[in-house]
Design a protein around this nucleic acid. Structure first.
Length: 555
RNA sequence: GCGCCCGUAGCUCAGCGGAUCAGAGCGUUGGCCUCCGGCGCCAAAGGCCACAGGUUCGAAUCCUGUCGGGCGUACCA
């Protein structure tokens, strides 16, 4: 699949021409990055550039004069192609494109097909997205759901940028937490025999262990009267494997599949943890104090010297995690994205400090950090707490409103903002629901094509000349934004940019479709409009695909 | 106390490498069905962009401070 080339988007076409004009005028390229904006208001042309105002300030020139000079040069060079430029306001260069040039963008889109909005920035290098990574101690909550969808969508976006992407789930299947889990499960098991015991400090209180206990009894029988070594081993295995399987199913129902489940235990068994510490000591990033080994991270913003090995000799989570990241590098990943909750920011700074000390490239590891989720129902907001047993499982939520809607809501807010999940809106099947609204636009177009029959074939070669109304051209210019939105969403870990965009395209489509008749018009007009709507369908379909939502032909 | 994130329309939120953006969805009010799926469209009302200073010809956007909310600040993971 050929990558869609940057130069063919209209905005970049305009940028290039403006830069050329500036260079020819000033004898040097612009010194600053400037904005090209797509205008809603046709009075200001199709696109506006703020180049003159920025450069004038930097170089002590008069903005409007510089803008006029650039605009004149622009017209001199490109006027024969039907391009115009005007100066307005404090020094904007407003560019007007010919309908033919705008139509070119649609033609390129149709020819690129599903390759529209793909890039080759990653050049096929391997990129890993690690997410969820919840330890198998309980069911996934709605909070995990946000991370799951965010990670999955970032993986899809990274693939669009040209990386060879792998999704990985990191989990701990041994150690103290798992022992506590095993013991908690065993206590629930003993309750089935009428015994009453206290769940230990730091143990797991959740109801879900009662259900598992019953299943375990059916499978291992009635032995294990004491929590001895044999019981520990058995219950540890039962707890981890049953809960892991539950998690896997939960993710599956959301349409998420991992390429790799990575066990923390292997790092210990293979001596990788000790190696990591040795490596840190070699570069003087670790030191000893109070009988423990510490990481130097005070110099990093938000960082803090932290314990790597406790005074009793056990490594901390941080050291193991550092070993894990060394392992990622050794496995050949060029880049790694870790999706994490906002409660991990200090650890993230420490990790960055450690990897920097070990000589990793600064862009090797990127953190996609997200805030938490609260649920709103019937106007009331509830905060969830796993500890207090007050949470809604991801499974229940998906069962109630379906994976598509859950996915849309989870990525429609910027990750670093708190997400208030509006259950009533999510449950609504009608136009109120933005997810449904976008899918419906796709469906309407699919329906139109069913009706159009052969008229809708071979549209990549259609004559687009009839598309010259402001309505036609505005829609094409919106579709033209898709590649850059994909790029910004992927590079900035910001899927919400794409969901906003898709909603905007869907909204514009519905209005356009109301104002413009397609079938029944003269064949050349109908063909041209079908071509345009094919473009809309493609962009919406690709967007929904990136979100992991279905793009239905019928609803 | 310190660190990070967030304060924009009644509600949920975009915009934040400055100007030609005060925006969307929901909610409210009022219109549009001999018409390709009305699960649609159009319009109105509604905001001192938390507050106070500063930088700038120009600030929702950058800087400083204050006030609110969240999360951290473990030899937990």
């Amino acid at each position: 699949m050929a990558g869609y080339r940057l130069e063919t988007t209209l905005k970049d076409f305009v940028r290039e021409r403006v830069v050329e004009s500036y260079r020819s005028l000033r004898g040097a390229p612009p010194t600053l990055w400037f904005n090209i904006r797509l205008n809603d208001n046709p009075q200001f042309g199709d696109y506006s550039a703020n180049l003159a105002m920025l450069e004038a300030k930097a170089q002590g020139l008069v903005p409007r004069t510089l803008a006029q000079d650039i605009a004149d040069e622009f017209v001199r060079r490109a006027g024969s192609e039907g391009l115009r430029a005007e100066v307005a306001g404090p020094g904007f260069i407003n560019v007007f494109l010919s309908p033919e040039r705008v139509q070119d963008s649609l033609r390129a889109l149709l020819q690129a097909g599903e390759g529209y909005g793909t890039w080759e920035l990653g050049a096929g290098r391997r990129l890993q997205v690690e997410f969820v990574s919840s330890n198998p101690t309980g069911p996934l909550t709605v909070g995990h759901g946000r991370q799951a969808v965010l990670g999955d969508v970032l993986a899809s976006l990274s693939a669009r940028l040209g990386y060879a992407v792998e999704r990985e789930y990191y989990f701990n299947d041994e150690g103290r937490q798992v022992d506590l889990l095993a013991e908690s499960l065993w206590i629930r098991y003993r309750e089935l025999f009428g015994e009453t015991r206290e769940i230990p400090e730091g143990g797991y209180q959740g109801e879900y262990l009662k259900d598992i206990a019953a299943a375990v009894r059916a499978s291992v029988g009635d032995g294990f009267a004491e929590f001895d070594e044999s019981a520990r081993t058995t219950f540890r295995h039962e707890a981890v494997s049953r809960i892991s399987e539950g998690i896997r199913i939960d993710l599956e129902t959301l349409g998420i599949r991992f390429d790799q489940y990575f066990s923390e235990g292997t790092l210990h068994r293979d001596g990788k943890v000790a190696e990591a510490l040795a490596a840190l000591r070699r570069v003087d990033a670790a030191y000893d104090k109070d009988g423990a080994a510490w990481l130097r991270a005070e110099h990093v913003p938000g960082g803090k010297d932290s314990v790597l090995v406790r005074s009793d000799g056990r490594p901390t989570y941080l050291l193991v995690d550092i070993a894990y990241h060394i392992n990622k590098k050794e496995r050949g990943f060029a880049r790694v994205i870790d999706v994490q909750g906002a409660d991990h920011v200090v650890e993230q700074a420490c990790m960055k400090a450690a990897l920097a000390a070990l000589g990793f490239p600064p862009d090797f590891l990127g953190y996609a950090v997200h805030q938490f989720v609260s649920l709103k129902e019937k106007g009331e907001t509830q905060r969830m707490s796993t500890r207090a047993g007050r949470f809604i499982t991801l499974r229940d939520l998906v069962a109630e409103i379906g994976p598509d809607i859950v996915r849309y809501f989870m990525i429609s807010r910027k990750p670093e903002a708190h997400l208030e999940f509006d259950l009533d809106l999510a449950k609504s099947q009608s136009l109120d629901n933005p997810a449904t609204y976008i899918q419906y636009a796709h469906t309407r177009i699919a329906s139109l094509f069913r009706k159009a029959g052969a008229l809708g074939d071979g549209l990549a070669a259609a004559d687009l000349a009839p598309l010259r109304s402001p309505d036609d051209l505005a829609l094409i210019k919106k579709l033209d934004l898709f590649p850059e939105i994909v790029r910004a969403a992927g590079e900035g870990f910001a899927p919400h940019l794409l969901s906003e965009y898709a909603l905007d395209v869907a909204r514009f489509f519905h209005g356009y479709y109301d104002r413009n008749r397609v079938l029944g018009e003269a064949d050349d007009v109908a063909r041209a409009r079908l071509a345009l709507l094919r473009g809309v369908q493609l962009v919406l379909g690709q967007s929904l695909g990136i979100f992991g939502m279905s793009a239905p032909e019928e609803m």
